[in-house]
Computed example of a mutant assay.
Amino acid sequence: MKWLAALCLLAMPVQAMAACRADQVEFRNTGGVTRFSVEVADDAAERAQGLMYREHMAAASGMLFVYERPQPASFWMRNTFIPLDMIFMDETGTVRHVHANARPKDDTPIHGGDSVLAVLEINGGLARRLGIAEGSVMRSSHLDQAKAAWTCE
């Protein structure tokens, strides 16, 4: 009987499983739904460290930067050794800008917009392959659910 319960859990649609765990985010777009396991950087020290000095990151992983309120956001790649896609979102979780394949160790500022609440960094080139683009929507427990375009269940 345990195997039947496990099979039922595996068969559940992605939207119903772990919809809003603190260590996961989901993106919805015309291609469907994609889930990432995330580390969360939600204070100044964690945001300053980011993904510096790492030499690899699992394909379905990322780092979610969350600010206290929407604000202008710029990133750079100092001491970051892997190419990254940076997905900039507003307070609703709607993607407003995607910067693809940021160059490792580059100090050039990457501006994501003036009203950024969250940024997800994932492996370079992955956003395009998964269809994550402007207008895609992220679901996360780190968003104010009263403002979120795609709420937690």
Rank of each mutant, 00 (worst) to 15 (best):
M1T: 14
K2E: 13
A5R: 13
A5T: 13
L7P: 03
L7K: 13
L7S: 14
C8T: 08
L9P: 01
L10E: 10
P13C: 08
V14R: 12
V14M: 15
M17E: 07
M17N: 09
A19S: 14
A19T: 01
R21M: 11
R21H: 11
A22R: 14
A22L: 15
D23K: 12
V25A: 07
E26Y: 05
F27Q: 07
F27L: 07
G32P: 02
G32L: 06
G32Q: 00
V33T: 11
V33G: 00
F36P: 04
F36V: 09
S37W: 10
S37A: 12
V38K: 03
A41S: 10
A41K: 02
D43K: 05
D43M: 02
D43P: 02
A45H: 05
A48W: 00
A48N: 03
Q49F: 06
L51W: 04
M52Q: 15
Y53V: 00
Y53D: 12
R54E: 05
E55K: 13
A58H: 08
A59I: 07
S61G: 04
G62F: 02
V66K: 06
V66F: 06
E68G: 12
Q71H: 12
A73Q: 11
A73L: 00
F75V: 05
F75P: 02
R78E: 12
N79M: 07
N79Q: 10
F81H: 14
F81K: 10
I82A: 03
P83Y: 08
L84A: 06
D85Y: 03
D85W: 02
D85A: 07
D85G: 07
M86W: 01
M89H: 02
D90R: 10
D90G: 10
E91R: 05
E91H: 06
T92R: 14
T92S: 15
G93T: 09
T94N: 04
T94S: 12
V95Q: 06
V95C: 07
V95R: 03
V98Y: 02
V98D: 01
A100S: 15
A100N: 11
A100W: 03
N101R: 12
N101L: 12
N101D: 14
A102Y: 01
R103Y: 01
R103I: 13
K105C: 00
K105W: 04
K105L: 14
D106R: 01
T108K: 14
T108S: 12
P109Q: 10
P109H: 11
I110A: 04
I110K: 03
G113E: 08
G113T: 13
G113Q: 10
S115H: 15
V116K: 05
V116T: 13
V119K: 05
L120W: 07
E121K: 10
I122Y: 04
N123E: 09
N123D: 09
G125V: 04
L126I: 13
L126P: 00
L126N: 04
A127M: 05
A127S: 14
A127D: 06
A127Y: 03
R128E: 15
R129A: 15
R129Y: 01
R129S: 15
L130W: 11
G131F: 06
I132S: 07
A133P: 01
G135T: 10
S136K: 03
V137P: 01
M138A: 11
S140T: 11
S141P: 04
H142R: 15
Q145V: 09
Q145W: 10
Q145Y: 11
A146T: 14
K147M: 11
A148S: 13
A149K: 03
T151C: 00
T151D: 00
T151L: 00
C152H: 10
C152T: 08
E153S: 12
